[in-house]
């Protein structure tokens, strides 16, 4: 393959997974309590996709990586201060709500429009990456819609590995039931790949990458247009934390043999 890929990574921002999340009702629908105060990160699966994209671009000369990210501008800027140090990319920013209760198809519409507006994007070399689900909406339905809007019918979800052959075809490993991977071969780009975790560790923070990225990140953020997301016909009756509290029996100061016997009895269904 003479030319590399044009890889567009779709990645939203989500609250740091360790934060306590609570829903609240607002006039515009459900939201998170203190949503703007919660530290945000690039969606973990989308982050895997971004690292995979960067690794692929490094292997394939003449490749280029874009990150198309939607979120409130101030939050997006903050996340980019961290993400921007990881791998080289060009940001395409969309100033829009990033909460989990937004409509996946509305988000997909914004993402697809943003991708279509990237100057010089070569569809014959296009790989659209993203997380197979977000840690916010957690639906796994955005990326497929982006692919449809871009008329891409080679799509993969739960991807852990992408291997490119000499002839430009590639093999994809997708997570399926039973702890297995489905292996598929695809003849050529364009394709949509929703990544699971992949196999790459989080890259170290690289100050030079940060400096290079930031030259385009700040202008991209300044250019970002404020967009609204529609939720036509969707009504939430309620949103709640699962209120499950168990009576925990605590067994301590008990000999190991006694504990082990009790566990084995339980495993065997005796109690």
């Amino acid at each position: 393959m003479s030319k590399g890929y044009h890889i567009v990574v779709c990645g939203g921002i989500v609250p740091d997974p360790l934060q306590r999340l609570e829903p609240v009702s607002t006039p515009s629908g459900p939201a998170l309590r203190n949503e703007m105060m919660l530290p945000a990160v690039l969606d973990p699966w989308a982050a895997s996709a971004l690292y995979e994209a960067a690794a692929l671009a490094k292997k394939m000369p003449e490749s280029k990586v874009w990150l198309v990210a939607a979120g409130p501008k101030a939050k997006l800027q903050q996340v980019m201060m961290v993400t921007g140090q990881k791998v080289p990319f060009e940001l395409v920013a969309i100033d829009a709500p990033a909460g989990g209760f937004t409509e996946s198809f509305a988000v997909a519409g914004l993402l697809a429009a943003a991708i279509k507006s990237i100057p010089g994007l070569d569809y014959s070399r296009l790989l659209v990456f993203g997380g197979w689900e977000s840690a916010s909406r957690g639906a796994g339905s955005t990326l497929q819609a982006v692919g449809e809007l871009l008329e891409i019918s080679a799509q993969f979800q739960g991807v852990d590995e992408l291997a490119v052959a000499e002839d430009g075809s590639f093999t994809v490993l997708e997570r399926v039931e039973g702890g297995r991977h489905q292996v598929s071969k695809c003849s050529a780009a364009p394709a949509v790949l929703g990544w699971a975790t992949g196999n790459l560790a989080e890259p170290p923070n690289n100050p030079q990458v940060g400096m290079a990225n930031m030259r385009a990140i700040m202008p991209a953020l300044q250019k970002a247009k404020a967009e609204k997301l529609s939720a036509e016909g969707l009504s939430f009756q309620h949103v709640a934390l699962p209120a499950e509290q168990r009576e925990t029996r605590i067994v301590k100061d008990t000999p190991v043999d006694v504990i082990a016997n009790e566990i084995v009895d339980w495993l065997r269904g005796a109690n």
Binding site: T248, I250, D257, I259, L267
Partner: peptide, 24 residues
């Protein structure tokens, strides 16, 4: 674990699992 598990055994898992395996 409290409020989430039915039973919490406060013990060294290495010792407990060795004994569980022996019993199984």
């Amino acid at each position: 674990a409290q409020g989430k598990a039915d039973v919490l055994y406060v013990a060294d898992a290495f010792a407990v699992m060795a004994k569980v395996n022996e019993l199984l």
